[in-house]
Design a protein around this nucleic acid. Structure first.
Lengths: 254, 254
DNA sequence: CTGGTGCGTTGCACCTACTGCAACGTCCAT
DNA sequence: ATGGACGTTGCAGTAGGTGCAACGCACCAG
């Protein structure tokens, strides 16, 4: 829409491929050297472009700083909430959003079931880390040594007969969850309650949050709940897309 | 230097603080809304800016992608080499550059000693990971569980009486290296050879490479070699600065 | 030492394309 | 209904971006 800015921004992906000198930049932009020089200078003043000792240009540190700062100020909750509400409107059950923090998994958002029988949970409360579906997803994404170290440190309380009994079983389950890309908790925390969960991923593919749908047996059976899996995954993917700023729309010029 | 581009780029740090709507952007730029709109649209087409569901703008995923791609295409060796040469010119000893890769530490560059007595080493060859100064620096930066897991997996060959004897001693040494920010190998690999090493860090502060100066006892004593530490650290810091694209120069406008 | 080539840089005249304005559409709250 | 807030569009004027040509400089070969 704005030619000058358009050209300037086209320099960035070009430099991402590797350092380039003024002539190369001008050629690939299809503009005169003097024009390219001015654009590069402007980019340089903003720190997006760095001039190395051999005079060639490359991307600068500011870019990294910006990306990082934006990351930190990104509030998953804010982004996810409308999606959670929509899912709740569709299926009626309790919807949770959870993140991993400091060896704990915490619920950070929740949309209450519209059925009279509700499950108990509280935003901000650590979840039962060894059995909750969301916890499995979040921990399954850790690098292997950390996963192992954490699994060893945990207690494995037997909430029910189906609770994860020990570190070995837990690690096996995490491996499976990691591969299939979703998780369940079928009566592992409270006999009568089942969950299905799916991961929310950031731009780099790492799991930044997990969301789940939970319902007691008296409302739907585990099998019925499992039929919601595609819907849950679709919702999680939608949140991932928005969180990582993937623009789902029209053509971006080469 | 270019007004339009200048304005467009000023939007980025502004959005890094958090999402903003058109009016806010226009105000803080001091331009008309229609102008801000056009700039935002251009940024949007390049994926640097994303429009969330509430119509507000925030930084887009492309920014991360660019930063990552630039990272990958950054060649430390290319950047470091002139610095290594300069250091070699100053002190005359062998200078090495090493990186950590797949449970190994590899020399990726080397400037030969200008003294007649040289130490043996080859670019591309894995270093003695349990004793080499550069290896200590690279491994000391790993997260604790990974460091531990790796230390357990390693063999601890007794090259000399001063070689690191076992995992416990190694981990203790890594902890110390981590805190002091430099490392040595005093006859741990070959009786008569000593090294001092310093880390090269990326924009995010993580250690991406390590460099060392090595010399045999017959040329300089260990104590004499240690007096070079400040020089080695200064060189490593210079490489870090250039690698991470920190522009050491003049004022960038607010 | 000299002439040549390749690079980044500068000043300038032309005219593109960026700007601000004002008007319109839409959505919400009153 | 009515007012306000906000994003969006078309348009006329001119700010400022563009390409050209010339310059300075470093490097290399004759």
């Amino acid at each position: 829409m704005s030619q000058t800015v358009d050209r300037a921004l086209s320099i960035l992906p070009l430099l991402a491929e590797g350092p380039a000198d003024l002539g190369q930049v001008a050629d690939r932009l299809g503009v005169h050297k003097s024009t390219a020089l001015r654009l590069l200078r402007t980019l340089h003043e903003h720190g997006l472009v760095y001039r190395q000792s051999d005079q060639r240009y490359r991307l600068g540190a500011r870019l990294f700083a910006l990306a990082q700062e934006a990351m930190e100020n990104l509030d998953i909750r804010e982004i996810a909430h409308p999606h959670l509400v929509r899912l709740n409107e569709q299926c009626g059950h309790t919807v949770h959003l959870a993140v991993h923090e400091e060896n704990e998994v915490l619920y950070i958002d929740k949309v209450e079931s519209r059925y009279p029988v509700r499950m108990y949970s509280r935003i901000g409360k650590p979840v039962a880390i060894t059995v909750a579906a969301v916890a499995k997803l979040l921990l399954a994404d850790l690098p292997e040594p950390e996963r192992r170290a954490l699994a060893d440190k945990l207690d494995y309380p037997l909430y029910t007969a189906r609770s994860t009994p020990n570190a070995a079983a837990f690690l096996r389950e995490l491996e499976q969850v990691r591969e299939q890309g979703w998780a369940t908790d079928l009566g592992g925390h409270e006999e009568s309650i089942n969950c299905v969960a799916a991961p929310v991923r950031g731009a780099d593919g790492r799991v930044v949050a997990a969301m789940s749908v939970s319902a007691p047996n008296v409302v739907v059976t585990a099998d019925e709940l499992l039929t919601l899996l595609p819907q849950v995954r679709r919702t999680a993917d939608a949140i991932s897309g928005e969180y990582s700023g993937r623009t789902p729309v029209k053509g971006t010029p080469a």
